[in-house]
Design a protein around this nucleic acid. Structure first.
Lengths: 252, 252
DNA sequence: CGGCAAGTTGAACCGCCTCAATGACGGTGG
DNA sequence: CCACCGTCATTGAGGCGGTTCAACTTGCCG
């Protein structure tokens, strides 16, 4: 896997081995690029008929604004992730997207997705795999909010992010760069920023990890994984083991 | 819409108007039927290579068991809903399915889904719409757990269920039959069954609704909708308004 | 220098949990 | 026919996890 390949290709490579032809087709999806500043809304709530985007550089988030002004962050997007794909067939979206940092996105019109589905069942399966993985993350997030306490929840969140970033070469065993502030993370974890701050202090004092200055540094990865009861298997990052699934998919 | 049509057809009809041919194709998906008793596991956690199911009669649920023995119910399935579609391309599933009541399901092998995608882009779009709608429900569920209090959360849950059941003709303005017990609902809403019981009492005493003996009876629907700040628009139940989306999807 | 965004800490409160017990109901078997 | 059981619903008492409000710090930028 060359480091010059797009994050999207790196990600899909976890699902199946891509041929040079397929890689070229994927790159064709990403020709129309746009650079967008930090903290800009990308897709509005209730907006219809929007396109989807592939995030190439930077971080974004999807969220829902509650009637009382509160905010629930649905998930964060890192390079290689789709934005807005899950609502592209809905007449309205029940959530909005915004950039966190400055980003580079490729706009992917519905027409191009449709074409991919027509000409390459393999790539179609890969795109559907990515959306299934998003669902699996949503489910894990749900379990976070419903059944895990603040400490486990926070540890779990930071470990999942670590796995996702490793896949695209943006994290090491030591840690990773994370441009999210405590308000954003708190709104994702269903906590107040104040309490999240205390939880982060606990994790630091327990010498598990430090989150400071936009940097996550692990001190005791094993201890953290044990605390969070973390098993990233739901992300399905194997060595293209999904290829077996594809066979079932491709054969009629 | 004839009442003899399958719940799955009734549901997809909210997205687009189906031709007789398309209806026939859909019914072909549902030829292999199985009857399963109440409280049986359907798909085990971590199981791979499973098929998907279309639920035709009865209720089911998907859930995740936590390491401490707790349970988070992801969502409930009612007639017309897919089971296991979102994990069909993953090498493992991070959640399990179980029946709530006795059910009738149609087993849909991956091969048949693949065939639908090949021969009918319109039906493919309809299936993808159904999965998008599932995601939208997951997101609303996430907002429930993260940012709504127990009362609003419970009201929201019961109203969403009402909308879903109306679509397939199983609910009226008065209420609906609901075979879920308080333990199941509590595990879905991230509450203890004890607290849910108190919340249901509050809703009853506020003369908003009564949930008793497997029956939800509305006393003040408008008041309930206002309390829950409920807007079911995310379910995308219009009069086949999604058809416009399909046009974009179909045209190259 | 002033001003704003982000992080940090303390104090008081309350929503929801846990533990415990009791009531209502249908099924089953002696 | 009734005693016994399991499941589900209901209620009380007490405790904790996380919230809210408020204050102070730090760093950055104009």
């Amino acid at each position: 896997m060359s480091s010059s390949e797009s994050a999207f290709i790196k990600k899909l490579s976890a699902f199946m081995i891509l041929s040079p032809d397929e890689k070229a087709q994927i790159e064709m999806l990403q020709t129309v690029q746009r650079r967008i500043k930090a903290r800009k809304e990308l897709v509005y709530e209730n907006q219809s008929g929007h396109a989807a985007f592939i995030l190439q550089e930077g971080w974004a988030c999807s969220y829902k604004i509650m009637p009382d002004g509160g905010r629930q962050v649905i998930d964060f997007q890192v390079p290689g992730d789709f934005l807005g794909l899950r609502t592209v067939l809905m007449s309205r979206s029940n959530h909005a997207f915004a950039t966190v940092t400055e980003v580079v996105v490729a706009e992917v019109p519905l027409r191009k997705v449709s074409e991919i589905f027509r000409v390459s069942p393999r790539l179609a399966a890969a795109v559907l795999w990515a959306t299934s993985r998003d669902s699996a993350m949503l489910i894990e997030h749900l379990a976070d909010l419903g059944r895990r306490n603040a400490q486990v929840r926070t540890a779990h969140f930071l470990l999942e992010l670590w796995d996702r970033l490793r896949l695209i070469g943006l994290a090491t065993e030591e840690g990773y760069k994370c441009p999210l502030n405590q308000y954003l993370i708190a709104d994702s974890l269903g906590l107040s920023a104040i309490h999240l701050n205390r939880v982060l202090r606990q994790l630091r004092e327990a010498e598990l990890l430090t989150f400071r200055d936009g940097q996550v540094v692990f001190h005791d990865l094993d201890g953290l994984i044990e605390l969070a009861e973390y098993d990233g298997g739901y992300l399905d990052h194997g060595e293209a083991h999904g290829y077996k699934s594809f066979l079932k998919w491709d054969l009629q």
